[in-house]
Nucleic acid binder design. Structure first.
Lengths: 213, 213
DNA sequence: AATGAATTGTGAAATAATGCACATGAGTGG
DNA sequence: CCACTCATGTGCATTATTTCACAATTCATT
């Protein structure tokens, strides 16, 4: 349809990052902002900012900069964060429970509509947010019924692949995988990995390098 | 010292990813594994696997493959995950609390040695893991005293930069930042961002694209 | 209206990362 | 000991991403 000249993935990531300072600066009433300032706040190159935005249109005014409100609006439109999304979490361990209750989600329009666990001991337990933990065996039906679009997997690794299939069975379109294994998809489905231990190992590697000098 | 021919960052990330299936396969007793199989499990190209490893030496045997145990050992050595690391968490909200208690850390040798919060109401509270929440004002001293090397920041965004400085003050060498803002460093310090909302927005963008077709 | 300063949008150069394809060495069977 | 198969390690081509550098546009000032 559009000039779909393949947007680089890093660009999408950065758009999300750009929106953070913009939100803050909008609050504080700053009307206009340059690519240079924004780049400074986000730790990237100013040309990068401009090029990233240029993939989607012209949002700035030459000689002036970007209108903070408009730009934020535009980015939210691009990322599709200007509407609510229904999600569910599978795996009510410490991480899963922490995430469910985290205020950050609701604030950004991510609505946790269901929570699952395969442990019969946990099923039926009521969470602070009002949800009741359901059995993992009912994932497909429930997810379909509630029109859930995104699934978070915080189970132990060995359950992740099975859970992913159940989610897809229920027509979930995107999965955020917190486990250490890579999930394979049958249907068309967006998979994003958020394996924290990868982050850790990255950190530790670089820390070690630092010490070596 | 070594032929420090600048290792690509993606390579480090992937090494961590490679190690996951290796751990599992080691358990299950498989002695040898090819780059092709490993690549399949990790969703990457076999040549990529070989090239990634080649940055650090020759770990395989031509015509045969890689010894699972040796390779895993080698990767752990490279990533420096073959020893324990002392860390602390600042910000005992839902996410922070969930992380502290997560078993995955301890299992991988990350020892949570201290937990901080700036909310006086939370200070003094005892956590399930045995730690007592301490006041954020004591971060620098405590961190230095306990020899903590890595700091996790799970505070609200506006506290993150200040906390980062306190951590660096206490000689922390690496910070894992879960907040939405970018942290700037004074001293030499490894910063890794784990802003989950970026992951979400990525997901949502791609989901939207999918729907458009 | 003309000059100067600021800042965008973008082609082209530079840099980085990936993937191909093949020479090379290891094991196996005759 | 030769031929054949398998799978690594790697030079090179390809693709992706970043950065530079500059023309174009806006605004302020005179």
């Amino acid at each position: 349809m559009s000039k779909d000249s393949k947007i680089p993935n890093p660009t999408i990531q950065r758009l999300a990052i750009y929106s953070r300072p913009l939100e803050i600066l909008l609050e504080s009433g700053l009307p206009v902002m340059s690519s240079e300032k924004l780049a400074g706040l986000c730790g990237v190159n100013p040309a990068q900012v401009r090029k990233d935005l240029a993939y989607f249109g012209e949002f700035g005014i030459r000689g002036v900069g970007y209108d903070v409100r408009d730009l934020l609006q535009a980015i939210k439109g691009i990322l599709a964060t200007d509407r609510e999304w229904a999600l569910c979490i599978v795996g009510m361990g410490h991480l899963g429970s922490g995430l469910v209750q985290s205020e950050n989600f609701k604030k950004r329009g991510y609505m946790v509509k269901a929570a699952f666990d395969s442990d019969a001991g946990k099923v039926g337990r009521k969470l602070a947010c009002g949800l009741t933990i359901q059995s993992a065996s009912g994932i497909s039906q429930t997810v379909r019924k509630l029109g859930i679009e995104i699934g978070l997997i915080t189970t132990p690794p060995h359950e992740a692949q099975r859970v992913a299939h159940l989610l897809q069975e229920g027509n979930v379109g995107a999965i955020l995988n917190f486990t250490t294994i890579q999930i394979r998809t049958r249907k068309k489905c967006v998979i994003e990995n958020a394996d924290l231990s990868v982050k850790f190992e990255n950190l530790v590697y670089h820390l070690e390098q630092l010490d070596k000098v």
